[in-house]
Amino acid sequence: MFDVPPSHLPPLPGVGYKPQHYSAILADPAPVGWFEVHAENYMGDGGRPLAQLRALADRFPISVHGVGLSIGGEGRLDPDHLSRLKHLCDWLRPASFSEHLAWSTHDNQFFNDLLPLPYTSATLTRVCDHIDEVQDVLGRKMLLENPSSYLAFAESEMAEPEFLRAVSDRTGCGLLLDVNNVFISATNLGYNPRAYIDAFPLDRVGEMHLAGHDEDEDDSGAVLLIDSHGREMAEPVWALLDYTLARSGPKPLLIEWDNDVPDWPILAAEARRAETALERIAA
């Protein structure tokens, strides 16, 4: 039933776009294969953000990545936000649209964070209903991203790869595999990240995310990794990426760096390292 993952991004490294890099990107003769933007930053009426995005989209494939739709929310999706997303996608015609397996809004309050969900049949039904609605309104398939987890729900009935596979089966959506999130969640919740990858439906993956994390500890002194997006990706996650690519084949790889954002050459270097990983599996 599933032919091609619903993303038209090239299987090359891309970078999360930051406006401060605009001039450096345009001056770079060989920047990266594509860029990703956070949808909510481009929902104003005009001005520099939209003008820059249009100029960027004239040169590169763009992935629109939503961070505010609250697909896992108990309430209904915000129809205003959904129509803003539609407006943006109709205007930009991006190569991909993705969102998160998470909730961020409750009773019309938005928390600006990706909050966790129990993996139950009730959650599965709700998430699938919401994804059906998004795909209907946008008139396109979307990608759903695996979260970074800091805790577990006692009520969960299934493992995360199983849950995501079921969402993809029921809605036809593709998946966005965040390799750093897999490593974080596996460390924090005590499972094997390679077993997670083995169980993950890699044929549904239309994009992968790569990012850095921080290290903290919990009450028992166990390591607690924090998804901070503020540094280079950790070595064990690069190894997990190699393991994943060897099984999935080439995929669009995104460098995410959202805090303490460095100058463009540092990001370009991370993208080159991702390119090396892609070349290794082609060899």
């Binding site: 600006n112 964070d113 909050l115 800091y150 805790l151 577990a152 924090n188 005590g190 919990d218």
Partner: peptide, 24 residues
Amino acid sequence: GLRDKAGAPAGKRFNVYRNNVAVG
């Protein structure tokens, strides 16, 4: 109903969300 990796109460792990929301 929130737990750590050993099935014990999540405790301090929940502070990641408290902190993320406030900082963001």
